[in-house]
């Protein structure tokens, strides 16, 4: 946030957040396109790795550090490696490059293009699709508060006091705590909250008390069992079998 605040505070300064966003977005989309148009399965897998890793950068840029880390670890480190295993297991000469007919390409691109148009249109039709003003308003409020406090301190003589002895008035304390609360709300320090939410405690929304709405313990458990089942099922499905036909 400070990065953002810093960047936004100076209008003419290059917004590195934006820059990094465009970089990782370009990488992600580009390698996705490359994967799409590559017909070599091995290359496809490689491009996918890069694309997904870049996507994790996009996620980092949204402030979701934990999810981004998971994206890197699970996708790039796990799933795609799994896929690459699959590629290697089936990588016979005939299957490495499989061309698709041009008609299919055209059709798919038309349909995909229209879908993309639709989705983009929907994405940019979101209210305040461009960055909203509330961050800047908040910064301005903080600055204004700072100025007010300094001004009031100077006017009532608190400024002469030692730094340790300077005290805020009651009204100022209320305003400050309100500001701090609003700032903290957007603070991306969520890893601990995610962990607590997974065991059923919501720290970000203590006011919500409705039963069944608070935590994610049950979905977490379901997903755990699901993974176990998948593990067994995958092992069963992929086990070596004697070909009865041949």
């Amino acid at each position: 946030m400070f990065l953002l605040a810093e960047a936004t505070s100076n209008a003419a300064v290059i917004n590195w957040h934006t820059v990094f966003f465009f970089v990782v977005a370009a990488l992600s989309c580009g390698f996705a396109l490359a994967m799409l148009f590559s017909s070599n399965i091995v290359r496809m897998a490689f491009f996918l790795v890069i694309s997904l890793a870049s996507a994790s950068g996009v996620i980092f840029l949204t402030g979701s550090h934990f999810v981004g880390a998971m994206q890197l670890m699970i996708y790039v480190g796990g799933t795609v490696v799994l896929l690459i295993f699959g590629v290697m297991l089936t990588a016979q000469e005939a299957f490495i490059t499989m061309k698709t007919k041009a008609g299919d390409w055209v059709l798919a691109l038309i349909v995909g293009g229209s879908l993309f148009a639709l989705l983009t249109q929907a994405a940019f039709s979101v209210e305040a699709w461009h960055s909203t003003d509330y961050q800047q308003d908040l910064v301005k409020e903080v600055e204004k508060f700072n100025k007010d406090v300094i001004a009031s301190m100077q006017s009532d003589g608190r400024a002469e006091l030692d730094v340790e002895d300077r005290k805020l008035t009651k009204e100022e304390r209320v305003t400050l705590s309100d500001l701090q609360k609003r700032i903290r709300h957007g603070y991306p320090e969520l890893t601990g909250q995610i962990g607590l939410a997974l065991v059923g405690v919501r720290t970000d929304q203590p006011s919500v008390e409705a039963t069944g709405y608070t935590g994610y313990l049950l979905p977490f458990e379901i997903v755990s069992v699901h993974l176990l089942v998948v593990l067994i099922g995958a092992a069963y499905l992929a086990r070596a079998k004697k070909r009865s036909a041949e």
Binding site: T8, H17, A25, A32, T100, L115, L119, T132
Partner: peptide, 28 residues
Amino acid sequence: LTEPVGLSHFLAVGAFLFVTGAVCMATK
């Protein structure tokens, strides 16, 4: 480069990846 990116930029990236994936599924 100086303007901050907004929500829609991210949505656009997501949409692009989505469509690329869909087309990939349809063509591979």
